[in-house]
């Protein structure tokens, strides 16, 4: 995040002077703001990942951040800063981490983690919600990260844990990691009906299975995200999405650094979940 802030500071200096800098100009300028071991090429690559592009303008090319990234950041920061100003704000973070013997506790990849979970028996995902006010953690370990499980967790656990009118922060790519079970004509009529109702598609139990399946087929699946945000919003909470480029602003990173350090200090040579009381105990310790 320090690098990102230094880049923005540097861009601001150039723009104020009416200059459209090159990647290398920004690299040289950033080196004056913070020390960096990145080469010019690595730095340029980092900037591209952060969303910087050359935009063709009547006066030439202009290096700038993609406006959609700037705007997303604005809306996120505006909401979170306003919320923090309130007396005892109820802010929660929903996060998920891969739990395996590597003990890296990484976030699941953007695409479905289904294949990863199926390929090995000792890997699971810890799906949890943490409050930055009460420091409470509520979570589940699961081997099946699908919409049904996530929505059940939201309904059975999260809604109980949340204080009224809470703000829930979720990573932008959270929904992409959750797999969706595709229905086939071999599924039962009840399953198809259940799916249609869960996704608010008008239908009745009097309809024949063929009609219901036709409705399922015609429903554009890409628009159907995991509907956890609509469940939360229906209960008066607000869900805000943390842009991918702002992941460092998620305090859950501190929690996992704490756990990593704790595990390392207990058995620095060969840390294993089994010989250090397990992640659950460490989380409880928090």
């Amino acid at each position: 995040m320090e690098l990102q802030i230094a880049i923005l500071k540097s861009m601001n200096i150039f723009y104020r002077e009416g200059i459209s800098p090159s990647f290398n100009d920004v690299y040289e300028s950033v080196k004056d703001i913070i020390p960096t071991e990145l080469t010019s090429a690595q730095f340029e690559n980092n900037m591209i990942v952060l969303g910087y592009i050359y935009k063709k303008m009547p006066f030439g090319r202009l290096l700038m951040e993609k406006p959609e990234i700037t705007f997303q950041r604005f809306f996120y920061l505006q909401t979170i800063i306003e919320t923090r100003k309130k007396n005892k704000p109820n802010i929660y973070y929903i996060d998920q981490r891969i739990i395996d013997n590597s003990l890296r506790f990484q976030k699941p990849p953007s695409q479905s983690v289904e294949a990863l979970l199926q390929s090995t028996n000792d890997t699971s995902v810890f799906l949890y919600i943490v409050s930055t006010t009460t420091r409470q953690v509520n979570g589940i370990f699961t081997n099946v990260l699908d919409h049904a499980n996530v929505n059940k967790w939201i309904n059975d656990v999260v809604l109980d844990a949340l204080k009224p009118k809470s703000v829930v922060v979720v990573d932008s790519n959270f929904g992409h990691t959750i797999s969706r079970k595709e229905l086939t004509m071999y599924d039962t009529k009840a399953d198809i009906l259940k799916w249609l109702k869960e996704n608010s598609i008008p239908c009745t139990s009097n309809m024949r299975k063929a009609e219901l399946f036709e409705l399922y087929k015609k429903t554009p699946k890409k628009d159907l995200n995991c509907n956890f945000s609509s469940i939360l919003e229906a209960h008066g909470h607000r869900v805000i999405y943390l842009p991918t480029t702002l992941e460092d602003l998620n305090p859950t990173n501190f929690l996992w650094n704490f756990i990593r350090n704790k595990l390392q200090s207990q058995d620095p040579d060969k840390p294993r979940l089994t010989n250090c009381g397990g992640v659950t105990n460490l989380i409880c310790e928090l």
């Binding site: 802030i5 723009y15 604005f74 920061l77 305090p251």
Partner: peptide, 29 residues
């Protein structure tokens, strides 16, 4: 930790407002 995050949120927000203005200057050229 959380204090640092709050500071960074405010710094980014302020910086974005400044850039919005300075970038407009370049775009008007």
């Amino acid at each position: 930790g959380l204090y640092k995050i709050k500071q960074m949120e405010k710094e980014l927000f302020k910086l974005d407002a400044e850039i919005e203005e300075s970038l407009d200057n370049v775009l008007r050229m």
